[in-house]
Design a binder for these strands. Structure first.
Lengths: 139, 139
DNA sequence: AAATTAAACGCAACTAAGTTGCATTTAATT
DNA sequence: AATTAAATGCAACTTAGTTGCGTTTAATTT
């Protein structure tokens, strides 16, 4: 199991190894698609307060452990970062696919985004390609 | 002025020409960047109920007159569609730039998205490229 | 021009997402 | 064992967006 990797992640990011945060990372690692706040809550065995969950999500995102994928339906999903992201270089050079039927969010590693730095006077720090449609399970 | 174009838009989409909806479209046409609900409310002279505003935004989006750009900060922006979108083919083949300083959202026509139809079993109906960073005014 | 009707509107009440302040607990350090 | 700062829990709050329902009004029909 990747429990060791989780502990390593928490250590290098100076996040305390609490039961809940370890379990939260396990949930993310064992899910192939993005999770909304509600999804996360359902998958956590300990009945944590929503504030605690939000705070963990926020710090994980800030540290580059997970990333947030916004959705036109106003319910963002969180997913674990596939490779090494850090607080400084939080680049997700892959697309996200959102199924409009089952509402699941998948990372699509097959599509590589061109890393643009500048376009017509805009300084680009991050880019995010979101695809919408039907996922393999819903076609 | 493009008042005539607005009336035409409403007519072809079978939306009644009320004072408010005409004004709302004028606001969108005269703004070069995306508007949040709050932005819209501030720019409307008549003091419309928020439900009325939301319903107009929803129907305009459904008809392909405006499109919604989600943001990681959970405040979506709405912007008028540059070309001919329709209820069926609501494709926005351009990127959106969100300034992390002033929070403005701009359509970036310079970047053309490759129109992907299928990737690894996913059926893609819509795609959305969002760029984040500093806009020309904030650099 | 009057009657009809369905879209648009306004209000109240609600849900759901996410935040803030503060007191308490606990992991990690000294 | 004592310290301390991170993490937690609770209450209360804000903000975005929705639903139901009765009323108004733009557009159509007679």
């Amino acid at each position: 199991m990747n429990k060791e990797y989780i502990l390593e992640l928490l250590l290098t990011n100076k996040i305390r190894k609490t039961q809940f945060r370890i379990e939260l990372l396990e949930v993310f690692m064992n899910t192939k698609y993005g999770l909304s706040f509600k999804d996360v809550k359902e998958r956590i065995s300990s009945t944590q307060d929503k504030v605690t969950i939000y705070r963990a999500l926020t710090i994980f995102e800030k540290k580059g452990i997970i990333h947030k994928v916004p959705n036109t339906n106003d319910v963002s999903k969180y997913a674990i970062c596939p490779e090494a992201c850090s607080e400084k270089a939080h680049q997700h050079n892959h697309a996200h696919f959102i199924c409009t039927q089952c509402e699941k969010t998948f990372c699509v590693d097959e599509i590589e985004l061109p890393i643009l730095k500048k376009v017509k006077g805009y300084k680009i720090k991050r880019s995010n390609l979101t695809l919408e449609g039907d996922c393999p399970d819903c076609i």
